[in-house]
Design a protein around this nucleic acid. Structure first.
Length: 151
DNA sequence: TAGGCCATCTGGTCCT
DNA sequence: AGGACCAGATGGCCTA
């Protein structure tokens, strides 16, 4: 295919200069330009789709490591981020406390005092699946007010 | 049927 | 110039 050598159509500014490709160039070049623009748009759409798919993959990976407390419905993106934030904060506090109490025994006995499984509910208000979820068992051996949905 | 969530398209902006 | 990122618009699907 013949290309417009003058480049005046691609610049976005119309010019009176006659294109060397001949009198039919204006039509040919402009349709070619539209074709290129359409191709670029399609390519950009595909890239955007891939980018969003990558983002969704990352969300799925995050969902797997964040506690869901027996919820059958998967967390929305917003809920996933909120839960991840709360989860990280809870773990951070646990680590900070573990550092504060010199021995593991001392730390464990501190948290066992507060552990009442019946009183633990996840943030939607439903009862947690403590029996089935090992994460729940481990993390919620922790004072309940330390793990709340961030707002 | 309304509302929530999501995927996709699109145009704008920033960065390399 | 082209790619990455972002936000708004739109339409589809699902659920209460």
């Amino acid at each position: 295919m013949k290309t417009c050598k003058a480049g005046h159509l691609d610049s976005g500014i119309e010019s009176d200069v006659q294109c060397r490709s001949g009198p039919g160039c204006v039509v040919k070049c402009s349709s070619e330009r539209m074709e290129n623009a359409a191709k670029r748009r399609l390519a950009a759409n595909a890239r955007e789709r891939r980018r969003m798919q990558g983002l969704n993959t990352a969300f799925d990976r995050l969902r797997k490591v964040v506690p869901q407390w027996g919820q059958d419905k998967k967390l929305s993106k917003y809920e996933t981020l909120q839960m991840a934030l709360s989860y990280i904060m809870a773990l951070t506090r646990i680590l900070a406390e573990a550092e504060r109490y010199s021995t593991e025994r001392e730390w464990i006995s501190l948290h066992c005092e507060h552990f009442h499984p019946e009183s633990y509910h996840h943030y939607t208000g439903q009862k947690m699946a403590m029996d089935s979820d090992p994460y729940a068992q481990r993390i919620f051996n922790y004072h309940p007010e330390h793990f709340q949905i961030a707002n």
